[in-house]
Simulated assay, not measured.
Amino acid sequence: MIIWFDLLMMVVLFFMGLCFYRSNGKGANLLSGYNMKTKEERSRFDEPQMCRIYGRKMMQMAIPFFFGAVIDLILPGRGCLLAWIVFAVLFVRLLRLRGKMEK
């Protein structure tokens, strides 16, 4: 059961990242807080580049869930926990990168 959850999270994150990566900047409106900026503030950002960066990061966040599923084959439940911990670390790193990009 947990293996399927890991695989589902992997697929969802990978395809969301792929959609952002290929959006050519159109996915920027889906980013939290970015859609509330004024047009003047948005003009300072390279939206296609920002979406490519977010897309790559999302696809990278799918990798721990693949390895979590593999670990769950041997030690049920431990791989999922480990995947979520690594995901949380990657997510915090993404938030820090976003803070640097918006300055």
Rank of each mutant, 00 (worst) to 15 (best):
F20R: 05
V70W: 09
K26S: 06
L97P: 03
Y54N: 08
F66Y: 13
M36C: 10
T38H: 02
M1P: 11
V89N: 06
V11W: 04
I2S: 09
G17L: 04
V89E: 06
F5R: 11
Q49V: 14
I53L: 15
M1C: 10
D6Y: 03
Y21Q: 02
G17H: 02
K37Q: 13
F67G: 00
E102S: 15
K100N: 12
R22Y: 02
R42I: 07
R22N: 05
K103V: 09
N24G: 15
G99F: 14
R56Q: 09
L81S: 11
P76G: 10
Y54F: 13
I74R: 13
E47M: 15
L31W: 04
L18K: 03
G55R: 00
C19S: 08
S23R: 02
K57I: 15
Q60L: 13
F5Y: 08
M59C: 10
M10S: 05
R52C: 00
G25Q: 03
R52D: 00
G17T: 00
C19L: 06
C80P: 01
R93E: 14
V70Q: 11
M1A: 14
V89K: 08
R42K: 11
K39T: 10
A88E: 02
R93A: 15
V12T: 01
I74A: 15
R56W: 10
V92G: 05
Q49S: 14
Q49K: 15
N35T: 03
K37V: 12
P64M: 10
K100I: 14
G77L: 12
K100P: 03
L13M: 08
K39Y: 13
I74N: 11
V11S: 06
E41N: 03
W4C: 07
I63M: 08
R98N: 15
I71K: 05
V86K: 10
F5A: 12
M9L: 12
L75R: 14
I2K: 08
A88R: 04
G25V: 03
R96S: 08
I85L: 15
A69S: 13
R93P: 09
V89S: 07
F15I: 03
V86I: 15
P48L: 09
M101S: 09
W84Q: 15
E40C: 02
L30K: 06
R52L: 03
R44M: 11
I71R: 03
D72K: 11
P76M: 13
F65Q: 01
G77D: 06
K37E: 10
M1F: 07
F5H: 06
N24E: 15
K26E: 05
E41Q: 12
N35S: 06
L31Q: 07
P64Y: 06
M36H: 12
F67R: 05
R42W: 05
R52P: 00
A62Q: 01
Q60F: 09
V89G: 05
E41A: 09
V11Q: 06
